[in-house]
């Protein structure tokens, strides 16, 4: 009987030793615990209430802007000008390039001593420039199309040709 009791005590003792598990060589728990304790401290730096105020304010401003935009859009559909078209933007670019080219040509001829003397050239150039302005204005108002761009290109070509005629005095002779 005593043997059984001793056997039982030995088994309990053995079980208690096994249940204690493997003990790590170094105790890391203290470091882990301290890191876990730091997080709540950081969270308290930005109060949740402030964030909600900020988000709410932004939403209110955005909603106000949208409301104003919708009201303005609804109240003035007739007076609003149509958007500037791609054709008009292209025409403007062509016009700027043409302007620079014409200025450079005229300066070059004048520096070389040529003068534009004949009135009919001046009048025709004025007609072309006036036509160009009307074309651009119409494209600004109505959008324009490929045909009007082609017309503008042609007017620009005519302007260059007429400038050449107006300043140049003799034809270039060709070899036969």
């Amino acid at each position: 009987m005593k043997d059984k009791k001793q056997q039982l005590d030995a088994m309990i003792h053995e079980h208690q030793q096994q249940d204690s598990g493997v003990t790590p060589p170094a105790d890391l728990w203290a470091g882990i615990e301290s890191r876990l304790e730091e997080r709540p401290v950081q969270q308290t730096a930005t109060p949740i209430a402030t964030k909600w105020w900020f988000a709410g304010g932004l939403s209110a401003v955005a909603a106000s802007l949208m409301t104003v935009a919708v009201i303005v859009g609804l109240q003035s559909p007739v007076t609003k000008q149509p958007d500037v078209s791609e054709w008009y933007l292209l025409a403007q670019q062509m016009n700027q390039a043409q302007h620079q080219q014409v200025d450079a040509m005229a300066s070059g001829y004048q520096l070389a001593g040529y003068e534009m003397t004949q009135n009919n050239y001046i009048e025709s150039l004025a007609s072309l420039r006036n036509a160009k302005q009307q074309l651009l204005l119409s494209m600004q108002e109505n959008g324009g199309d490929a045909q009007m761009i082609d017309m503008l290109r042609w007017i620009n070509e005519q302007e260059i040709q007429l400038l050449k005629h107006a300043y140049q005095q003799q034809p270039v002779l060709e070899e036969i």
């Binding site: 007609s127 036509a131 009307q134 074309l135 045909q147 009007m148 082609d150 017309m151 042609w154 007017i155």
Partner: peptide, 11 residues
């Protein structure tokens, strides 16, 4: 019947 006529004018 196959004709194309394109015309552009300013002023």
């Amino acid at each position: 019947d196959t004709a194309t006529l394109d015309a552009s004018s300013v002023s």
